[in-house]
Write a protein that binds this DNA or RNA. Structure first.
Lengths: 106, 106
DNA sequence: TTTAGTACCTTGCAATGTATAATACAGTGT
DNA sequence: ACACTGTATTATACATTGCAAGGTACTAAA
């Protein structure tokens, strides 16, 4: 199991969202921060990292609403990692849940 | 929501397990590492931190099976924090789940 | 022309987990 | 006697990651 999972949940969220369809950074910031408390400065480094690891490809596209958007498209490699990550995450939270219940009542 | 939650799951596990009954460090290491992948060096610093923040009280007790054990007992303050933490964690994983599903299929 | 919204990126910092090892006691095997 | 294994605590150096804050820049509305 990925030991990074203790913190790497955001990475997985980004992977999952981009795996569904191509997205740009700001869009991801909006999507994710609507659900969980993150700052803008968190997502861009993740995008950079995931791109450097060849999980994403990027292209620029002009926008009428502001500066050009940088879109991220998932690669085959990225899709695999995303898939495995989702599975690991499910296992992880089940284990945590068991531990928390061992705390609670018995 | 506690922004620390992105990583602070182990802390909550320790809190929950001690809240159920008094435990010593090594016991917690065994309990937790049977479920999730951690190294021994992870739990003791957490115990120290939580004790410094007055979530735990400690006492020593001799053991026939080795050196004396340091037991941790949860305080009222710790119990509150544990309770809130559990609630926040449930909310958090529900939000993450929603995000992951927005990735998946739609 | 100033403000607000969109959009991207970078830097320094703090928190947290990892790896590794040192210390120490008790019981078992050689 | 000696070494090894299991129990038990603690400390240190290190890497990763998220946070806070700020900088750049384009568009549209006030």
């Amino acid at each position: 199991m990925n030991p990074q999972f203790n913190k790497g949940i955001l990475e997985l969220c980004v992977l999952a969202l981009v795996s569904r369809k191509e997205r740009y950074g700001y869009e991801l910031v909006e999507l994710i921060s609507s659900r969980i408390d993150i700052s803008e400065g968190t997502i861009y480094p993740i995008l950079k990292r995931l791109t450097e690891e060849d999980y994403f490809e990027t292209y620029l596209q002009e926008s009428k609403e502001g500066p050009p958007r940088k879109y991220y498209r998932i690669t085959a490699k990225g899709r695999r990692v995303c898939h495995d990550g989702m599975r690991d995450w499910q296992v992880f939270i089940r284990q945590v849940d068991t531990l928390l219940k061992e705390g609670e009542g018995k």
